[in-house]
Design a binder for these strands. Structure first.
Lengths: 231, 231
DNA sequence: GCAGTTATGGACGATCGAGTCAAGAATGGT
DNA sequence: ACCATTCTTGACTCGATCGTCCATAACTGC
């Protein structure tokens, strides 16, 4: 259906698109992000992208299909960020990678002054119940994230940073839940500092190996070592 | 503005309402719950409640005000459930109460076959960003829940079920986040068994007192991997 | 039974928003 | 210059939906 991509055009050359599809999808995402699916009008998207509605419908089908594109891309990106932070690297730094990832997620939510939250959470909340496509994609995404976390936890266990007696699958599910919970709590109004604390606490309570460790359980409300400067 | 509530009617007696306000609010809640705010039509609510639109508008103002009523009642109920499960009782059973509460929340989500999720989460996700009333009420609710959890954690610490060196505020925030996260993850498609496991795991990793078990792992003071913002 | 008040319910108006369409534009090959 | 094809635009359709209006109902005290 797109001959000009496969080979040079055989006969007549149609008018080429005047917009960058990727860029349009990003701008559309911004709209859906701010106003949700039901709350976003196609005219909003037309205005945001500068395209006429005819072009939008011609290129993406309808509002639902457009959203599915945006949502799918977003899910891919979410997993991508996690892979970037988590996958690969020596076992000795697995714990650091886990920590960096969880803190990053908290930081994103904490500094999300517009309270947009994650599109994944917002779309799931709004649509997963009625839209099998969204439900399926979001479930896939959750599974992928949990797998990444489990792999990393296993690595940390090999290196002795986490009690090897613990079930990595369950710890991964817990961390994933905490990350999603930070999102949800942030949107529900939990203050940024608390969000950051939650991330730290969640990492602190991960079971240490037998017989270790220096350092008490929870960080007291001590001062210092808190890179949190809140606006 | 509502004389007949205060004392017998002074002069003329208006036609009384033919519906039970509470019941109507519950039915309206059901609608909002299933289809969200933007996705619910006033005609849906009229049909669901059996009332004419004139009555609805006369009694509640408009769609937004009606939703605020429903949402406010729901928040009150959420805190009520938590109080019922958590507040009061001997310290020796504080841990059991905490456990019961967290497991109850997980169970609710796990058995929510219609994937409705909690109205609090759904409304926060959809509206908190734009509706200050919803944002404020949901923030209040979070604070109330966190307070209840903190109180209970403190009680468990007194009885020696949780390491007294841990900061109860932070543990409370963590548990609250886990509970909200279970909601979010459930809606995003995490399977019921995993949700239940998360609740159990979250309780298991709460730091035990010195004598009993191991302690937590501290976050590596590694390079504070620069939280590169992701959009 | 009449008066004064509020409730009821459904028709109505006005607007809004998703999706369509037709006329014109851009393109390389001939 | 002409062709065949696809892209672009925005005005248009048409159904949906919020909120209003009004004739009528229900009620109590007189």
């Amino acid at each position: 259906m797109d001959d000009r991509v496969k080979n040079g055009y055989p006969e007549p050359m149609p008018r080429p698109r005047a917009f960058d599809e990727r860029q349009v999808l990003e701008q559309a995402r911004e709209q859906f992000w701010v106003t949700g699916f039901a709350g976003t009008r196609m005219d909003d998207i037309a205005r945001a992208t500068g395209l006429g509605k005819g072009s939008l419908y011609g290129a993406f089908g309808d509002k639902g299909k457009l959203f599915h594109r945006v949502f799918g891309d977003w899910c891919t990106a979410v997993v991508g960020v996690a892979e970037e932070r988590l996958a690969g690297g020596p076992d000795s730094e697995a714990m650091a990678r886990l920590s960096a990832y969880v803190h990053l997620m908290a930081e994103n939510t904490a500094t999300d002054t517009e309270r947009r939250g994650c599109l994944l959470a917002k779309a799931s909340a709004e649509l997963a119940q009625h839209d099998p496509t969204v439900a399926g994609r979001s479930a896939e995404t959750m599974t992928a994230l949990q797998d990444l976390l489990r792999t990393e936890i296993t690595a940390a266990q090999r290196h002795g940073d986490i009690d090897s007696a613990a079930d990595p699958e369950r710890l991964a599910a817990l961390l994933l839940t905490v990350v999603r919970g930070i999102e949800a709590a942030g949107k529900a109004g939990m203050p940024p500092k608390t969000l950051r604390d939650v991330a730290a606490t969640a990492l602190e309570v991960l079971p240490a190996p037998e017989g270790t460790k220096r350092d008490g359980v929870t960080v007291r409300p001590t001062t210092g070592h808190d890179p949190a400067r809140e606006s």
